[in-house]
């Protein structure tokens, strides 16, 4: 090995370790991606990343927070938290009318939501690691979940599956584990901050795979 190549490797090694990892949050609409991203950002920066709502497709643009230093059991890692719009195969403005939006607002929301889905997919290539956030009260065999995970595997991006909303009676983490036996599944409640310790532990394990 030449001296120049030695120094190149040595310094790139140092910078690689200091690099800010892009941690993406993906999943179907209303699974709690923003709630979880908010919880992390609030815990470590004191600020939230975006607004949450019961109306699906509240996040219609990719939003991110840079230099979020997560500290867990004495270990520290810096991430760029990337919260993405929910990925769906259909968007019907009439579904938003049920939430007391008028027709114009519902149509605008639907239009922005379709653009958000495309934007979320485009960002997939930029991620270093991804948390797939699923609603533990819903059927995990939804094709969107399988498509997202399939794309991450194809791009060799490490994946952690989060079964969110375990505070709800209908939540079934075991069903999600059975649907994705090859992945680590962590059951949490982003809303109430339940089981976040296990989540952070798995994030650190996942970051080592990058």
């Amino acid at each position: 090995m030449g001296l120049r190549s030695f120094f190149k490797r040595f310094f790139s090694g140092i910078f690689k370790k200091k690099k800010e990892l892009k941690l993406g949050f993906y999943g179907p609409p209303n699974a709690g991606k923003t709630s979880l991203a908010n919880r992390i950002c609030k815990d470590f920066t004191g600020e939230e990343i975006g607004t949450v709502s019961k109306i699906p497709h509240e996040t219609r643009k990719v939003q991110f927070k840079e230099k979020v230093e997560i500290e867990y059991k004495g270990k520290k890692m810096t991430f760029k938290i990337v919260d993405t719009p929910g990925i769906a195969t259909k968007i019907d403005y009439e579904d938003f009318l049920k939430f007391r939006l008028n027709k114009k607002e519902a149509k605008e929301r639907a239009k922005e939501a379709t653009q958000g889905v495309v934007e979320a997919i485009k960002w997939l290539d930029d991620m270093d690691l991804v948390v797939v956030v699923l609603d533990a009260t819903q059927n995990p065999y939804n094709q969107v979940n399988i498509t997202i995970i399939g794309n991450l595997v194809a791009r060799k991006i490490p994946v952690l599956i989060v079964a969110n909303k375990i505070d709800l009676r209908k939540a079934n983490v075991k069903k999600i584990e059975a649907a994705f036996p090859e992945y680590k599944v962590v059951g949490i409640s982003a809303r109430f901050g339940k089981n976040m310790d296990e989540f952070y532990e798995e994030i650190f394990k996942l970051a080592k795979k990058v």
Binding site: T89, K90, I91, T114, Q115, I121, L124, V144, N151, A154
Partner: peptide, 30 residues
């Protein structure tokens, strides 16, 4: 379809919503 084709299908579907009358997307299962 390959995973990348599935996302491409979703992207093209999203692009068509609002441009094709009464088209609201697709339901998909494998």
């Amino acid at each position: 379809l390959a995973p990348e084709e599935e996302t491409r299908l979703i992207e093209d579907t999203m692009a068509m919503i609002g441009h094709v009358k009464n088209f609201k997307g697709i339901e998909l299962a494998v």
